[in-house]
Amino acid sequence: MSEHVEQASEHAAEHPGYGTFIKVWVALVVLTGCLVGMSLVSQTYAVWGLLTLTPLKAGLVFYFFMHLRYEGPLFKVVVLVTLGTLLIFFALLFSDVAFR
């Protein structure tokens, strides 16, 4: 194959063990707890929680559970392009909705 990048990314050498993933899981459960806690405080907090903690949780799942951490740059680019596109769709849509 021609690209060095892709060549190098043929699965990074070491595989992570059980421990890493269990730690991540604990973090995810704790974050869920925080989210619930924030939503109990007030609506504003709940929305802030939605905007900050949820992407963080999703990021953890992507990065560790879905092995993005251990992959080469290509997959990261693929995910970022997708999320970027969705974000631009949102922005352009709201240029209509929010300014009517």
């Binding site: 869920t32 939503s39 929680g49 939605l50 903690l53 999703a58 799942v61 559970f65 092995h67």
Partner: peptide, 21 residues
């Protein structure tokens, strides 16, 4: 596994959107 995690990620978003916030 990748597929299952994605299903999980989607639910991570659904929870606050409908239940919490």
């Amino acid at each position: 596994g990748l597929y299952w995690h994605l299903v999980d990620v989607i639910w991570i978003f659904l929870l606050p959107l409908f239940y919490l916030a």
